[in-house]
Design a protein around this nucleic acid. Structure first.
Lengths: 334, 334
DNA sequence: CTGAAAGCGCTTACAG
DNA sequence: CTGAAAGCGCTTACAG
């Protein structure tokens, strides 16, 4: 493998000059610059990033924090994030947050050993030590698809979960439904916000909130959607519509409804959130509140990059991305 | 940030000794070892990988080569690979192969600048310079889910595409079908192998191969499955079964059949390949040939790791993983 | 068993 | 504008 010394020798200049050329520093005479550039070109030399990182005290690594069991939405999202991370020239460093009790501590430990330049966080972490560490190390963090308040200066990128959920519920109400079942997770803030939106919509239309029409899940997966729907059906409380707070949940829900002999949307209208790729291809295709995955992934990395290179002040920023209601076949007028 | 010097100073030993302790070298007296270990523990010191990599002439990075448009199967697969890569302590380096003409050359360029320790390749690359480069740099490569012959010493991990496809076709035949439509890609070897298996099954059962029942796709996505099925239907040649060579294709196909007023499986039985998560939740749920994604991802990284650390000789290895026919609702006796 | 020293491939004050 | 030198945080012969 060639090193900067080789290039210097071949071009007949010092390593300092080669370094300056590579880093586009101004103070190099045109002819030397040309010469160095030509040698680099001819030899196909590529500088060793590890060496560079070591003196610049950086790592060129961006961590993507995500749960170890993720749904399709998250898969699409982190694919998008990874794609952008690579295109900015960073290395991708996945850190999976185990759902075990010790999960968050493991993340902290791993984080300490990785020395990341920045983090895109796709799942909330509550461990106070984690927040403290990130803060005092001044590691730029972007929170993607959620918003929490126990942090000093991260940027949040997300849709308004409350308003999105409210719109979904309003939409079902506008179709004449009033017995609207609801599937949501307890643990994360975006679930809480969606639950709030759901309740608000009911209230504003004078529909009494019935707790027995809500089924809670541990994760936003198809499996959980199916299980939660089974639980709902066992309660024997009639409902003509179902709002599942992710498309994965909704697809699992529809599957359970069908297995239980119900038709969608004839017997039950179903609406989801996310607009994952599959929602267009299911039968019936899924009405949903779209989160613009590509846009969010791109923006997250763009902002993270700016913060890493110091172009952006580390102030708290809350970026709310517009959602879109996409009407498909899984919902119907009552 | 602490460095090895700090630890040496605090523990009252030389940096050499600290280094030896960290790398589990035998020749360190127990008491000094203890002392160093304690200081490391107390300070939470973690060695700088970049510095280590630089002297060991390694990068600790594993590249995952994948197409820039991928289907759910590939998404599940590379999630799995990435998970394992991280757990072995490597950094993940995604390299997306653009479908543009220049895509493979860009990959080569990127590869040269990355100095990867190893590669898991999820998509074929034909560019001869790529093969040459990987060979002469002696970069360990694992080919995952396909098998090609223009390479000196990579390991292939895959199901038998020919036999899997044959089994799928045989299964449809055993249900009484003889007009079996077929959706497959032209470009990649595994497509060719699956096409071969399909034809063999037909032939062995005395069914004439009808080229007009085959529809070709550019990628194994739902979108392409839908499009290919539309093309099939437009030909107005009756078929009672359809073998789509990926679940993504099959799901797109079912969607098109439904939109065209056909029932699955009553009018058309559909079988896929892969057993992606969704195939269990679609309506009807999808009969398919399972590729064991978790197992394949794990094995790929395990073998790559062995090769990187030199425990495994770089001989050509062809590892054929068993597939499984999973019967669900999308197929039915004629 | 242990430490001082050289070296990995870079960057960047410093001096000219 | 340019080069010699010091330094980043490690590992590993080498000598004792």
């Amino acid at each position: 493998m060639l090193s900067i010394k080789d290039i210097a020798r071949i071009a007949g200049v010092s390593v300092s000059t080669v370094s300056r050329v590579m880093n586009n520093k101004p103070s190099v005479k045109a002819d030397k610059r040309e010469r160095v550039l030509r040698v680099i070109e001819e030899t196909g030399f590529v500088p060793n990033r590890a060496a560079r990182d070591i003196v610049l005290k950086q790592t060129s690594k961006v961590g993507i924090l995500l749960p170890d069991t993720f749904n399709q939405f998250q898969r699409q999202l982190f694919s998008e994030v990874a794609h952008n991370v690579e295109s900015y020239g960073y290395y991708t460093n996945f850190i999976f947050i185990s759902s075990e009790d010790s999960g968050e501590e493991e993340v902290l430990h791993k984080l300490k050993s990785e020395r990341l330049d920045g983090i895109v966080q796709l799942k909330e972490i509550e461990l106070p030590e984690f927040c403290t560490y990130v803060e005092q190390q001044e590691i730029p963090v972007i929170h993607l698809t959620f918003e929490i308040e126990n942090f000093m200066w991260p940027t949040h990128i997300h849709i308004s979960d409350r308003l999105g959920a409210k719109e979904a519920t309003n939409y079902l109400i506008s179709l004449g439904h009033s017995d609207i079942a609801f599937i949501v997770g307890r643990k994360f803030s975006f679930g809480t916000h969606r639950e709030q939106g759901y309740k608000e919509a009911l209230q504003e239309h004078g529909i009494r909130y019935n707790q027995d029409l809500t089924s809670y899940v541990d994760s936003y997966t198809m499996r959980e959607g199916k299980r939660a729907t089974e639980a709902l059906l066992q309660r024997n409380i009639p409902f003509s519509a179902l709002f599942a707070t992710s498309d994965d949940l909704a697809i699992g829900a529809i599957r359970q409804l069908v297995e239980s002999g119900l038709n969608v949307p004839e017997d039950v209208s179903v609406i989801g959130v996310d607009n994952i790729e599959f929602s267009e291809y299911t039968d019936p295709s899924l009405t949903t509140i779209e989160q613009p995955i590509k846009e969010m992934g791109k923006l997250a990395v763009e902002l993270l990059h700016k913060r890493i290179i110091g172009k952006e002040e580390p102030t708290m920023r809350n970026i709310v991305i517009p959602y879109t209601l996409i009407e498909r076949e899984s919902t119907k007028r009552k």
